[in-house]
């Protein structure tokens, strides 16, 4: 639970998830382009890569190699723990 909350407690990391929900399976280059051009986020590529590491260790992003390329995918599964713990509907 701690790692999920930590992962989504940052605006840049939330923007990364937003962009992956828009189009899943992006390279680091595409993600950085979207963050710069659409969100005005001027972080370095290295900083974005570190944000991706945090999202990956929380299980919210899955990085997969396909041949020589590496793509990043959104995984919403870990977020279920939040609504299981604090249900959105009445019991």
């Amino acid at each position: 639970m701690d790692d999920i909350c930590h992962a989504i407690a940052d605006a840049t990391r939330r923007a990364i998830l937003d962009e992956l929900v828009q189009r899943d399976g992006q390279t680091l280059f595409e993600l950085c382009g979207r963050l710069t051009m659409k969100h005005g986020i001027s972080s370095s590529r290295q900083a974005i890569s570190q944000h991706l590491d945090v999202l990956e260790s929380a299980g919210l992003v899955i990085a997969r190699r396909e041949g020589r390329y590496k793509f990043h995918w959104f995984n919403g599964e870990p977020l279920k723990a939040i609504t299981q713990r604090w249900p959105t509907k009445g019991r």
Binding site: Q26, E30, R65
Partner: peptide, 10 residues
């Protein structure tokens, strides 16, 4: 080249 390609950088 391999490092650029891995990160999707043209």
């Amino acid at each position: 080249k391999a490092a650029l390609v891995e990160d999707g950088i043209p």
